[in-house]
Design a protein around this nucleic acid. Structure first.
Lengths: 226, 226
DNA sequence: TCCCCTGTATGACCTATATCATAGTCTACC
DNA sequence: GGTAGACTATGATATAGGTCATACAGGGGA
C-alpha cells in the first residue's frame, strides 16, 4: 500500500472539502495514519470512543453482532467517508465494530482534538449534520423494510441501494448482501440465482452486476396490488 | 389547550437551552404555533421540508408506511424534542409522517429561517449533532434487533427502551408496541398477556406498567446459551 | 342511555423463511 | 502445485410467527 497524501485526502473528503489550505494543514497535523490489513478492526463495539476516522483508502464495514451470533452490516464505507463519529460526539462507546474488508488506510483524529477543531468551524458542523441526517434517513428506510417487507423486497432494495451509491457492479459476496438485508446466506444465494436466471443480474464469486435495474425496482416494490 | 409560553418552551428544550435571552426572543419571533388535534398530521412522508418542529405540548409519533400497508413507528416524541429536522437539513422530502397522538402544540420554524439562525450558532449545531447521533445509535440497535432477534426479544427490548425514557408506566396500546417492534398486534397481545400472567407487567387498555424490569431484561437477552 | 369504535383476547391454520445437510468450485497462500 | 478455507449451490425439513376468524369489554360521543 503506497504512501498517502493526507492533505489531498482531507481536501477530497465530503466534510472537509472547501476548508482553507491552512486549516487543512492544521487538520493534517492532528491526523494519525492507521493501516488496516484486510479483516483487521479499527475498533470494536463497546470500545471507548477515542478516535474519529476518515477513510483514506480501501473499504470498511461497520458491523453489529447480535445475541444469536448473527452479524448485521450497518454500512460499508468508501474513501472520503467518515466513521466512528456517533460515538465520538456522544462520548459513549462505539455502537458497532468497524472492520477493514480489504487492506485499508484510515486517518484517525483524537476525540478531543476533533471536537476542539469542530467548535471553531461551524461549516464543518453543518456538513456533519448533513451526513448524519442522510444516514438517519437511510436507517429509517431500512427499519421500515426490515419490519414490514418480505425478504425478496429487502434483498432487491439492498442491491438497489448499493448500486445507487456504487454503480451497477457490486463487489460483495452473497453473505454480505444477506447480512445487510437481514436474512441468511442461503436465502440470498437462492434469490440471486433466481435473478441470474432471469438475466436481471450476472454474478460471480464476490461480485454482482446489475443488468436490469428496472426489473429489480419492480421486485423491490413488491407484488402488484391485486 | 391553554396558551403556551414560547420562550419558556424554547429555554427548556434540549437544543436551545443555554442560549442568551435575546437569542431566545429572536427565535420566538421566528416560530409559529401549530395546534394539532389528536390524530392530525404535522406533515406527511414525501411532503416538501418547509418546517422544522419543536414539540411544545402533547405527544407525536413519526410513522413510516410500507408497501404492505403495515405501519412502522420510528419514534414517539415528548415536549422539548425536535422532529422533521432530517428533511430540513438535507432539503429533501420528509422521510416519514408525523402524527399527533393526543392534542398537541408544536412550534414550527421555517426551513430558511432556521438554517440562517443555525449558521450563526455553532453551539446549537453541536447540540443537534448530539441529538442526531443519539438517534443514529438507537436506530442501529433497532436495525440489528429487527434483523437478528426474535419477536419476543424485540418486544421485551422495545418495552425496556420505552421505560428507560419514560419510566415504568407506559401509555401505549398493544398496537403501538407491535408497530415499534415490527410485529403484529396479535403477537404483541399474546406476549403481553404472558407477561401479565407472570407478573412482569400489569396492563390495561392503552397502558402498560412494568413491574419486574429485571425479568424483562432477561427476556430481552434471549434464551440462556446452552 | 345506548351504540359504535377501538382495544384486547384467543384459537386454528398456513406459509415464508430459517435450519440443517451435503456437495462442488474457486483462490489465496504455503 | 497442492490444500484449506471461503464462497456458491440445492434439497429436505422444521417452525416462528403471520393471517384470519370470532368474541367481548370499555369508553366516548350522540
Amino acid at each position: 500500500m503506497p504512501k498517502i497524501d493526507r492533505t489531498q485526502i482531507l481536501k477530497q473528503s465530503l466534510i472537509f472539502s472547501g476548508l482553507q489550505d491552512e486549516e487543512i494543514t492544521e487538520l493534517a497535523r492532528l491526523c494519525s495514519e492507521k493501516r488496516l490489513a484486510a479483516g483487521e478492526y479499527a475498533f470494536w463495539e463497546d470500545d471507548s470512543p477515542d478516535w474519529f476516522y476518515l477513510l483514506a483508502e480501501g473499504k470498511v464495514k461497520v458491523v453489529k453482532h447480535s445475541s444469536t451470533g448473527k452479524d448485521f452490516i450497518i454500512a460499508f464505507f468508501e474513501p472520503g467517508e467518515i466513521f466512528g463519529e456517533v460515538a465520538v460526539f456522544e462520548n459513549r462507546p462505539y455502537p458497532a465494530s468497524a472492520q477493514a474488508v480489504v487492506d485499508s488506510v484510515a486517518l484517525g483524529i483524537r476525540r478531543g482534538d476533533f471536537l476542539k477543531f469542530l467548535s471553531r468551524r461551524p461549516e464543518v458542523a453543518l456538513r456533519i449534520i448533513n451526513v448524519l441526517g442522510g444516514r438517519l434517513r437511510t436507517a429509517s428506510g431500512r427499519l421500515r423494510d426490515l419490519a414490514g417487507e418480505r425478504v425478496e423486497q429487502r434483498l432487491a432494495r439492498t442491491l438497489l441501494m448499493l448500486s445507487s451509491k456504487l454503480g451497477p457492479s457490486l463487489p460483495f459476496t452473497r453473505q454480505d448482501i444477506a447480512d445487510m438485508a437481514g436474512t441468511t446466506t442461503e436465502t440470498a444465494i437462492r434469490f440471486l440465482s433466481g435473478l441470474n436466471a432471469r438475466k436481471i443480474t450476472r454474478s460471480a464469486r464476490g461480485k454482482i452486476v446489475i443488468l436490469d435495474e428496472l426489473k429489480l425496482k419492480l421486485l423491490g416494490e413488491g407484488p402488484p396490488p391485486l
